[in-house]
């Protein structure tokens, strides 16, 4: 049974609510009955040792697990009061509203401009693309570095810049929630720091759920932290509480570095 404490949504409806979510790969249960509430405009971090199911859980939130042939999801994920896994819901529409940034930067082999414009284009956006691209690049703190070379290939950018480009690309479809799967794990420390600062700023406009294997990163940037172990949610609460005074022994063992 998970220990959940002090999730304050400030009276607003939660951005996302997972209820008894389980994920099966064939016969293996990778995520076991996880329930948690994501408050709006906050950063929620999912931490835990390798293979604990945090990435799998994250991918439930935008139905990316649909793309894996063997995967089966049970339970509910509520977004705006609507269960995302209902029959009538089109995963393509979900992903327009809940974006994702991946572990290794994966820009398309196109120009910087076309990378950011891809999302709006495929979704049938009819407005001013230049405006959207500029706004997105500004929000991801990349505009100053690329405004004069939007036609250059995305591959000409450094790793940290490419990841910020991927973030801009995700923001271009104006999602409500941004999911991040270990976004800084392949970057050097300075680039990592910039991404962390960015996340702190993005919180104003978006709700962010981030998976990280770096505990210190979760401590630095998140408002709420969920600790998962072997597919189960062990403890979920304000980051301050999780790192200074967790209630579960397993949580304390993990954050003090005694295992995992």
């Amino acid at each position: 049974m998970a220990t959940v404490h002090g999730i304050d949504t400030g009276g607003a409806r939660p951005a996302l609510e997972a209820s008894s979510v389980s994920v099966f790969y064939g016969d293996t249960e990778a995520v076991r009955g996880v329930s948690l509430v994501v408050p709006p405009h906050q950063v929620v971090a999912l931490i835990g040792p390798s293979g604990c199911g945090k990435s799998t859980l994250l991918r439930c939130f935008n139905r990316m697990n649909d793309l894996i042939p063997d995967a089966r999801v049970e339970g509910r994920v509520d977004f705006h009061g609507q269960d995302l896994y209902e029959e009538s819901i089109d995963p393509v529409e979900v992903r327009r509203r809940i974006g994702m940034v991946f572990q290794k930067p994966n820009p398309f082999p196109k120009s910087i401009f076309d990378n950011v414009a891809f999302g709006p284009r495929v979704n049938g956006f009819k407005g001013d693309l230049h405006e959207v691209v500029e706004a997105s690049l500004r929000q991801s703190a990349l505009w100053d570095e690329v405004s004069d070379r939007l036609g250059d290939s995305a591959y000409a950018l450094s790793g940290g810049q490419q990841q910020r480009l991927c973030i801009a690309r995700t923001l271009a479809v104006r999602p409500e929630i941004v999911l991040m799967d270990e976004p800084a794990s392949s970057l050097d420390p300075i680039a990592t720091q910039r991404i962390e600062e960015l996340i702190y700023e993005l919180k104003e406009r978006y709700t962010i759920v981030i998976v990280t294997h770096n505990m210190q990163q979760a401590a630095r940037i998140s408002d709420y932290t969920a600790f998962l172990y072997m597919g189960e949610l062990v403890e979920y609460g304000p980051t301050q509480a999780i790192f200074t005074n967790p209630r579960e022994e397993r949580t304390e063992a993990y954050v003090t570095g005694r295992f995992g």
Binding site: F102, N106, G119
Partner: peptide
């Protein structure tokens, strides 16, 4: 690349 494209709602 495919993942990224799907993730954007394509």
């Amino acid at each position: 690349i495919r993942e990224a494209a799907y993730g954007l709602g394509a």
